[in-house]
């Protein structure tokens, strides 16, 4: 029985195979940062499209703008404050910061590699420096972004004046 040697098959049969193939960079150190670079770029573009649209409200509907931005702070269209909404947007905000910072720092690495004549000699150092700079920035900014979650926003705290009111007080973060 002889073993048949198959010629390498082109990876491009079928759409799914092509998409999986497209997620591969060639392995090695660059694989994960290449994938994270690409996904963070697409994620930032998605946010950018939403952000340009919501900012467009400032020219013709200031109240739409205020209602939209209030959602990021956990206030729904009915004026009610929901802490899980606010927490979800804070975590999303952190994700946005992480995506932008990673894309920026890794992008500087790519620029060094591509445009600096000696860049290709320092590929490994560039990869490690990108990791160190990214995690340093995230370690500093994560507490700053999450710190306000320790208590409800000032205008959502139940004040003594409203204590006897029949109006249902806004939901307050359990961490208070």
């Amino acid at each position: 029985m002889s073993q048949t040697l198959h010629a390498p098959q082109p990876y491009q049969s079928g759409r799914l195979a092509r998409i999986i193939d497209g997620l591969r960079y060639g392995g090695g150190v660059g694989q994960w940062s290449w994938l994270a670079y690409r996904l963070s770029g697409l994620g930032i573009l998605f946010f950018l499209v939403i952000h340009i649209t919501d900012t467009f409200f400032v020219v013709f509907a200031p109240d739409w703008y205020d209602h939209t931005v209030a959602i990021y702070g956990g206030v729904w269209f009915n004026g009610q404050y929901y802490w899980p909404l606010r927490w979800a947007f804070r975590v999303g905000e952190l994700g946005l910061i992480a995506a932008v910072v990673f894309h920026a720092v890794n992008g500087v690495g790519v620029i060094l590699y591509d445009l600096w004549p000696r860049g290709s000699l320092y590929k490994k150092s560039i990869t490690w420096t990108v990791q160190v700079v990214f995690w340093t920035i995230m370690l500093i900014s994560t507490p700053i972004v999450l710190y306000p979650l320790r208590k409800a926003p000032d205008d959502q705290v139940k004040s003594p004046a409203h204590a006897g009111s029949s109006v249902e007080p806004a939901l307050i973060s359990p961490s208070r």
């Binding site: 400032v58 910061i97 920026a104 900014s141 972004v145």
Partner: peptide, 29 residues
């Protein structure tokens, strides 16, 4: 590559102003 270099300053600066110096909860019209 060149726009990326400019965006490191413009976009990261914008994020720093809006999310670190300020706060999405105080940004309004």
């Amino acid at each position: 590559r060149y726009s990326g270099l400019a965006l490191v300053f413009l976009a990261v600066g914008h994020l720093f102003i809006m999310h670190i110096l300020n706060n999405v909860e105080t940004i309004n019209y």
